[in-house]
Amino acid sequence: MRAFLARLLLNTIALWVTSQLYSGVNFAAGSGLLDYLVAGLIFGLANALVRPVLLLLTLPINLLTLGLFTLVVNALILLLVAQATALEVVGFAGAFWGALILSLVSYVLNALFE
């Protein structure tokens, strides 16, 4: 349970930091802490359940691009989270760059706290 809460908080903080750093990803006006936590929860669930399926289905193209297609999969996950939460993403390009920044922020947060 402790690990779940830690992961939820790290996802939430990473989404918030990304929304502060990049204007293509932001939360709807009037979003509160609960909206951020729900977005972090949905993001964690999407990464745990949907992302592995997408990576498996796109394995041939991922191999051809030497793993760079994973960035597209990450953008699709971010768009999926935006559809289900108060997170707003400006188009696919916004999702692509937002997912790249989110990955870097998550990496730094994981390195600091784990």
Rank of each mutant, 00 (worst) to 15 (best):
A75L: 07
S103Y: 11
L78C: 01
F96P: 06
G24K: 05
G30P: 10
Y107M: 14
L102H: 07
P52R: 11
L34Y: 04
A3N: 15
A82P: 05
Y22W: 08
S106T: 14
L76C: 11
A29P: 13
A6W: 04
I61C: 13
N74G: 04
P60K: 15
R7H: 06
S23P: 08
L57P: 08
L57N: 11
L56P: 01
L9G: 13
L33Y: 08
V73D: 10
L8M: 02
V38G: 08
V81A: 04
S23G: 12
Y36Q: 13
G67D: 10
L87Y: 00
A48W: 08
G67I: 02
V73W: 03
I61L: 15
A28D: 11
L10K: 10
Y22V: 00
A6E: 14
L104V: 13
V72N: 02
S23Y: 09
S23E: 14
L63P: 03
Y107S: 15
L9H: 03
L104N: 05
A28P: 01
L64E: 06
F96W: 14
Q20C: 07
A29K: 15
F4L: 11
N47I: 06
D35H: 14
S103K: 14
G94P: 05
T65F: 01
A48Q: 09
T70I: 15
L68F: 12
A99G: 03
A93N: 10
I101Y: 08
A95V: 02
G91V: 00
L21M: 12
L56D: 05
L102Q: 06
L59N: 11
N62I: 09
A3Y: 12
I77M: 12
I101V: 14
L41N: 04
V89G: 09
T85Y: 04
L9N: 07
V105S: 05
L21T: 07
L78E: 05
A95T: 05
V53D: 04
R51E: 02
N62Y: 04
V72T: 04
W97C: 03
A82G: 07
L104G: 14
L59V: 01
D35C: 05
V105E: 05
S31G: 09
Y22N: 06
T18A: 08
L56T: 11
G40E: 02
G44N: 06
G91I: 00
T70Y: 02
L55H: 07
V90H: 10
